[in-house]
Structures are given as C-alpha cells and as structure tokens.
Write a protein that binds this DNA or RNA. Structure first.
Length: 894
DNA sequence: GCGGACTGCTTACCT
DNA sequence: ACAGGTAAGCAGTCCGCG
C-alpha cells in the first residue's frame, strides 16, 4: 500500500458527545466526510476503535508532534496534529527507511562474520563516506542495514552492534534516527497531498529577517546559516493544541497506601476529564457501601458545569473512559506514566479487555497512547532545568498540590476521609479538581507550557513525548546529533572520545569533583551604598562561542594549534575549524541575547508576540544554562571533561582579569561570583571603559545587571542582601530566606528586611538598629511564652531518599520521619518532613505528634540569633551584646 | 565518663 | 543523571583529662 495516511476515527463518540452537551463543540468536522469511507460499522461500544484502513487524505496544515516505530508494519510513523479539525493523524513512512549502524570494516570483511550474515534481521550493506571530526579526516564506513531496530540493539544478546567489533551510531533510537535522516521538523507544519508528506516552508516576516541579518552581518557564513535555521524554527507560529486532563480515583482498602498500578486489584471509582474546549466530565461508579443514590446524568448541584455520567459496571466506565481518551489528540496527566494510565491499562486487562481495545501502550518507563499524545506533567515539572530556569524554583515539591498552589494559587482539595468512604459528590469534586488543576497548569500564562514544549522540541529535534520526559542532556544530545547527521559527520563513540579526552588537569576545591570550577570573590564586609552589579551575559555559552570550544576542537590533532593555549590549563584549541558545539550553542546564545531577550521586553509589540518572544527567550535560557555542564557529565554522549574544564578555567580568567582591570582604572570591587562583579559607587565613565575593555580583550560582552541603593555583605560568600532604588530587596543565600527555616523565623526575618529596605543613608542605620533590636526582643518573648503555633515552629526538610537509605548518619528529619513511620504514616523519598525541636531524648518530633509544651525554647533562641546575626554582623551589631542581659531575664523562671 | 576539637554527612543554596 | 563552590547544623569519632 503506497498511500499511507490513515485517519483515526470514531463514530459513536462524536454523535454522543454532541447529543449530550448543549455547549457547542469547538471543532469543525468537515474532514469526516472523507474519513467516513473508512469508518467501521461495527458496534463501537464493544469493539474499541482501530485502524480502519489507509485513506488518501489531504491535510492542509498539520504539525508533527511525534515519531514512533510501527512494529507490525516495520516502519516509522508520524503523529500529526491537524490544525483544521484538531485531531491526530498518523502518517506512515513511504521511503523504506531502515534501521542501521556503522562499521569501519569493509563489506568484504564483514561478510566474513557469519553471525552477522546469518542474523535474521540482517538486510545488507551500504558504503558511505563520513567525516570523522575527532581525527579530522574523511572515513569510508559501511552501513549495516537491518530489518528492525531490535536487530541492531536493544535485546540482551545477539544484536548486530554486539556481533561486530566496533559499532558507530548504534545507540541512537530508531525514531530519532528517522527524524535526523529524513529531517523531520518536530513541532513544525507539514501538508499532505495524496499521501505525500510535504514540509510547509516558513519564512519569517521580512523585517525580522532583515534585523537578524544585520545583527549577524559580521559573522561567518556558517554562523549566519545556523542562525537563519534557528530563526525559522523559532518564529513559526504554534497552533493552539486541543487537550484534556485526566485523573482517576481508586477505592483502596488500605487508605494510606497508594494502590499498585501493576496489580490494579481495586476498582476505579471515578474518572475526571477537564478539557481545553471547556468540557468538564466526571464518570462515577456505583459502590455498594455508599448509601446515597447515584447522581444521574443531570449533574450535581455542587458541580453545575460538569457533565456527570454514572455507571453500574466498571467495565462500562472504563470503556467510556477509553472513548473519551481517543477523542482528544493530547491527554494530560500528573504522574499518568506511573499511575493513572498504567492503572487504567492493567485494570482493563484484569477485567478481561483485549489489548487491542485499550488505547494505551505501556512502555518500560512511560505510558503512551496508540494514536494521541500523552503528556505527563509530573515528569516535565520534575525536570530540574524546568524547575530552576523556567519557573525560578517557584515550586519545591513536585506534587500536584505544591505545583498547583505555587503556580496557580490552587492546591488540591483536602480530604477528610479515605477515597473509599467518600460520598459521590465529594469524590466527584475532588477528582475533577485534580483534572482542573492539571489542565490549568498548561493553560496558565497563555498556554506557556505548551509553547515551551513545542519550542524546545523544535530546537532539539525531539518528540513531544521524549522531550517532556527526558532531561536537558537528551535534548542537547539530539540537537547535536542532528547537526552531525545533517553535515555527514560521524557521531563519535563514547569510548573513543574517553580514550583521548577523558582526563582533567585541574584540581577541584570540593573533594571528589573532577575539575576546578568557578571563582568566588571574598566579599568586603559591611554596608555599601550605590553598588552596581556587572555580569557577563550567558557567560559559559559566550566562552564556548568565543573560544571555539567543542569536543573536537579542544586538544585537536593539529600540532600548529597547540600554541592556542587555554589559560589555567594545559589544553589548547583548534584554529583551523569551527567547533560544532561552539557553533550550535554560540548561535543560540547570540539569538537569545541580541534578539529574543530584548524583543520580549520591547514596548509597543502586540501582546501575543511579546509573550511568544518571552517563551522563546526562556526556552533558550533553559538550554543554554545546561550547555556547559553536560560536557562534564559522564552520562552525556559527548562527555569531554577538557571542554568543561576549559570553559570554567576561561571563566575564572575572565572574572579575575576584569576585576584587575576595574581596580586598575580606580574602581572598588566589593564582591563577585562566577560571572558577576559588584562595584562600589562606580563612575559611569569607568563602567563604560571597563565594558569596552572586556569586548576588546576578552571578546565578551559585560552588562549592567542591576544597581543597588545599598548592599550588605557579611564575610560569607554567596550570602548578601541588596536594596534596590525602589526599596525592593534581593536576598541571596541568607538562612532567613531558606525554605527549611521555621515560618516564625522567616516572618521575623522579613520584618527586619522591611526595616532595612527603608534605610536611605548610613545615618539611618542607627534607627533601624533599634527597631531590629525590638523585633528580636518580641521574638524572644513570644518564644518564651510559647505563643507560636507548632506549624510556625516547624523545620521543613526534604527527605531525599527512603529512610533505609540513611546508613552513615541519621539526621534530625529522619528521626522525625521514623516516628511518623511508627505511627503508620507513610513517608517516602521526596517528602518534606515537618518537625519541631523538643526537650527529651529524641530532640525532635514531627509536628503531628508534638505538643507546644515540650518545645526546646533555648534551641530556638539560638536559631533566631544566628539567623539575624548573618545580616547584623555586617552592620556591626552584636545581638548578644545588646540583648545579653535581656536574654537572661527572659529566661529567669517566673 | 564527659566535653571540646575535629571530620564527614546532609541539605539548601549561588552562579 | 548538566557542572562546581559555599554555608550551616548535626552526627559521630577521637583525644585528653591524672
């Protein structure tokens, strides 16, 4: 069959949803006139929808969201999101592309390997020329073509990559290989004409093109070419994606245990959908232990906008759930990989469903949909880079409750009873609320997350499913692998890279680390007025760009390049070729710094466009921030410690030289960390001079990041407070701000900050001093009189592993966790333990089990002192001295 | 047997 | 599984003390 477009359709669902809802259904259905030709006539309620055949359809504009492998047809296929009807279409490869790996042996030599020749998956040879960047030479390689991906690798034994002596590019997943080779632009629009997949060319508006051309006019052709390709991917608009969030509830017999999805022993009692088209649905199962009558489809008083469907049989409810899942192109969950979809899948099997009736495909670490896309937001929010750089650590625990509360201001509903004892109405409300929150996480800020995912998928050539589940190192791997394939470069084998460049030459300050990192300048203690902070924008990416750093250019094979030494290291860098990662990362850096960052802030831009540029700027930030670190990470496919080491070393050189220069022209440097220097009352002309010097001597742009009315330093590094002109305050590293600090102390600390933010001159510190002293006294009194609640007194510390994992020492929060476990309260890795300090043998108790009477007041007083002292040290205030006498009298009995 | 000096572990932060 | 550098508090150990 040569025409290979196949539409996935259902008949009954469409009719039913239209009948049951008075609301207009958002999507036009004109496509269905063609599609109905292939529609099954069977009973849909019994027979789950399945491919009805291949249709010769035309799609005007559809976006590639994913690429996968069809084991039955032995070929790759695309999941396309059709803009006209907001549905997913599958397009199957029509080129006969096959899996392969590369060998340095000739076909003749390979023919001598009988295990290869007799391998059932072996198809044939193809001789290809590849450029070996490590050796800087052309190589003739043999492509060993196989019938299916598992023949190359993936099985424990007998794979082709294990049979031949040395295999290149054998670790690449087949669907990735297909994306690279066929240049499938993930997240970009295509059209389909008579079954042929055709990319829709996108050209940015001429004025954008012009601005960018002029920004890069002094760069090399290859740099410009790279930038142009990025711009095409980034400027192309994204469609609004139709989606539904899913959440299920299971009646567990043991309320404190999360039901095991693989066993799926207990019934699913509720399923909620909350969708971008405005529909909110709740499916409920009748339970014998609930006396109240089952609410009928008319709905519930407390959920007026929700459509309620009640079921006598779990099988029917699950079947209905599958219908709704199939109706949406994208299903959102929060932990659906490990729970909701997995439970649905296994429960359905337990209840006698046939695999073909289940729209879910279980992978080893994920649950995907046969036709649609499953986005597990838990995995995405868990990603450290997303957490830190895209959301500035606004949420701390990766739970629906914490993420929802932090980003949306809406947390989970509190339950007073276990799920199995809830009445229908509470259960429905609870379940639907979770689905609502999950959906809202993707609709907030004008669909920020959906856009973020699309932008990241485009630049990294990674499917939506992989992108949302994997870390930055995978994104960068795909980005750089793609560039290798595009150029006909051989992707190096990790072993080969390790053998020549697997060592470092500097000594880390922290024991156990591989190489020396950033420079931190000793702060000048005290309060300094008019402090300007200068920093190198995207310092490490700038270094990688400017100094041509890449795995093949650092310690390149050319003797004449050895004179291009890297300061602080025995390494050198190539002067003959442009490094591939220098180009890829460097061009992204320039686009962010010179174009997107400023465009996002530009006034007068249409709101939607400004928002889009903001998303791009943020996406690039996430990728750029990791671009240096990956070269020092053993798990990275281009792990190359000399590259990471060289980057850090040039960074130290840059900041140290910049400080030297600042001092030479008469400026006072009061602090600096990695890429920033803090200047005390600098003259504008001198700053200008320093910035010019930096461009000329270091080839890197220095910027004014912020200006403080005054900044306060103690003698501690990475600890300071800066008050801006408008009275807002930057607090860095101080205990009072840390999230594990008890609430009462955080509050008192911020009261002090408020006092300090009002200080305008050195003279005003005296008054502030007095007010702060009063503040601390009040704090002492309240502690002594036990006027704080246990919650306010609690320390909140994350348990990074299970209790059994603490073998070397037993920290306080683990002691508290043990007490909880004894009471039968489940605690797991990732939980935050709230405990208070008490007098008595244990020293600590979890909040739930403590009483205010046993609080160890002395311990808390010590905490108050040290927290305040961090700031007051710098202001020459000694709390002990001022409060010494007071403190004693507070604690005299009576 | 006990307290201070010390080291190592753990967490949370900064860039 | 992106990196290294810093602070703080506590757990555990060693050593001296007649």
């Amino acid at each position: 069959m040569s025409t290979s477009l196949y539409a996935f359709l259902k008949g009954k669902e469409d009719r039913e949803t239209q009948d049951s809802s008075p609301k207009p259904y958002a999507e036009p259905r004109e496509f269905s006139s063609q599609a109905k030709e292939g529609e099954g006539k069977g009973d849909e309620a019994k027979e789950s929808p399945k491919p009805e055949g291949y249709l010769s359809l035309n799609l005007a504009r559809a976006y590639v969201l994913s690429v996968a492998y069809d084991g039955e047809g032995k070929r790759a296929f695309l999941k396309l999101y059709n803009e006209a009807d907001h549905r997913i279409y599958l397009w199957f490869d029509d080129s006969g592309h096959k899996p392969y790996c590369l060998s340095d042996l000739t076909p003749k030599e390979l023919e001598g390997i009988s295990a290869l020749m007799n391998h059932p998956g072996f198809v044939g040879f193809d001789v290809v020329k590849k450029y070996d960047a490590l050796a800087d030479q052309e190589r003739t390689m043999t492509k060993i073509v196989a019938s299916d991906p598992l023949a190359i690798g993936g099985r424990p034994t007998g794979c082709i990559r294990d049979i031949i002596p040395k295999a290149w590019e054998a670790e690449i997943k087949y669907h990735e290989c297909y994306i690279f080779d066929r240049d499938i632009a993930v997240g970009m629009p295509y059209k389909i004409e008579d079954g042929k997949l055709i990319k829709i060319d996108f050209k940015p508006p001429p004025e954008v093109e012009k601005s960018i051309e002029s920004l890069f006019k002094d760069e090399s052709e290859e740099f410009k070419d790279m930038a142009r390709r990025w711009v095409e991917l980034l400027e192309c608009p994204v469609p609004s994606l139709r989606r539904a969030a899913l959440d299920i509830e299971v009646a567990s017999t043991v309320p404190t245990r999360v039901p095991n999805p693989r066993e799926a022993k207990e019934p699913i009692v509720a399923v909620a959908f909350s969708a971008s088209d405005g529909r909110r649905r709740i499916l409920l199962l009748r339970r014998s232990n609930v006396k109240a009558p089952l609410p009928m489809s008319i709905g519930m008083p407390s959920l007026p906008e929700a459509e309620v469907e009640a079921f006598e049989s779990e099988v029917d409810m699950i079947r209905r759930t599958f219908q709704i899942i199939e109706d949406y192109p994208i299903i959102l969950t929060f932990n659906g990989d490990d729970f909701d979809l997995s439970y649905l899948y296994h429960r359905a099997l337990n209840l006698g469903f046939d695999r073909k009736e289940i729209p879910i495909v279980m992978g080893r670490e994920s649950a995907s949909l046969r036709h649609g896309i499953h986005l597990d937001l838990y995995k995405f929010f868990f990603n450290r880079s997303i957490q830190v750089y895209a959301f500035s650590q606004k949420y701390r625990e990766v739970t629906l409750d914490d993420v929802g509360a932090s980003l949306l201001g809406v947390g989970k509903m509190e339950l007073e009873k276990p799920i199995s004892e809830l009445d229908y109405e509470s259960l429905a409300t609870y379940c639907l609320q979770d689905a609502d929150i999950t959906l809202s996480l993707t609709t907030m800020d004008e669909d920020l997350i959906m856009k973020l995912i699309i932008v990241l998928a485009r630049i990294s050539h990674t499917t939506i499913e992989d992108l949302s589940r994997q870390g930055v190192s995978t994104w960068l791997r795909n980005m750089i692998s793609y560039e290798h394939r595009r150029r006909g470069w051989l992707i190096p084998r990790s072993e080969d890279l390790l053998e020549v460049k697997g060592f470092t030459a500097t000594k880390a300050i922290i024991e156990g680390k591989k190489y020396r990192g950033a420079e931190v300048i000793e702060p000048e203690p005290g309060a300094h007025f008019n402090v300007s902070v200068l920093d190198f924008q995207s310092m490490y990416p700038s270094i990688i760009r400017r100094y041509n750093l890449s795995y093949e250019t650092v310690r390149c094979p050319h003797p004449e390049c050895q004179k291009n030494t890297i300061p602080g290291t025995p390494h050198w860098v190539c002067g003959r070729r442009r490094g591939i990662s220098s180009l890829v990362i460097g061009s992204l850096r320039d686009l962010r710094v010179r174009w997107y960052k400023s465009r996002a802030k530009e006034k007068g831009l249409p709101k939607a466009l400004a928002n889009w540029y903001g998303v791009i700027s943020n996406s690039l930030k996430v990728v750029l921030n990791a671009a240096y670190g990956v070269f020092g990470a053993e798990s990275f496919f281009l792990y190359c410690p000399p590259v990471a080491e060289a980057t850090a070393s040039i960074g130290r050189y840059a900041i140290i030289e910049t400080i030297r220069q600042a001092q030479a022209i008469g400026m006072k440097v009061v602090y600096g960390d990695t890429d920033s220097i803090f200047l005390k009352a600098p003259e504008a002309s001198k700053i200008e001079k320093l910035m010019d010097w930096s461009v000329e001597r270091l080839g890197m742009e220095l910027d004014i990041d912020k200006v403080y009315r005054y900044a306060v330093f103690s003698s501690r590094k990475k600890n300071y407070l800066g008050v801006f002109q408008d009275g807002s305050v930057d607090i860095k590293g101080l205990t009072g701000k840390k999230r594990n600090t008890p609430l009462f102390l955080q509050k008192a600390f911020f009261d002090m900050i408020r006092i300090l933010s009002e200080v305008k001159s050195a003279e005003e510190f005296d008054e502030a001093k007095e007010r702060i002293t009063e503040l601390v006294k009040t704090c002492y009194t309240k502690l002594k009189n036990r006027q704080y609640s246990l919650e306010e007194l609690a320390f909140n510390i994350m348990m990074s592993r299970a209790i059994e994992g603490y073998v070397k020492t037993k920290p306080q929060h683990i002691k508290a966790a043990e007490l909880l476990a004894q009471k039968g309260i489940e605690v797991t890795a990732g939980d935050i333990i709230s405990f208070v300090k008490v007098v008595g043998p244990t020293g600590v108790k979890p909040v739930q089990l403590a009483s205010i009477k046993e609080i160890d007041v002395e311990k808390y007083v010590g905490y108050v002192e040290s927290t305040f002292q961090q700031v007051l040290d710098a202001l020459d205030i000694d709390l002990k001295e001022i409060l010494g006498a007071t403190r004693l009298e507070f604690f005299m009995p009576g």
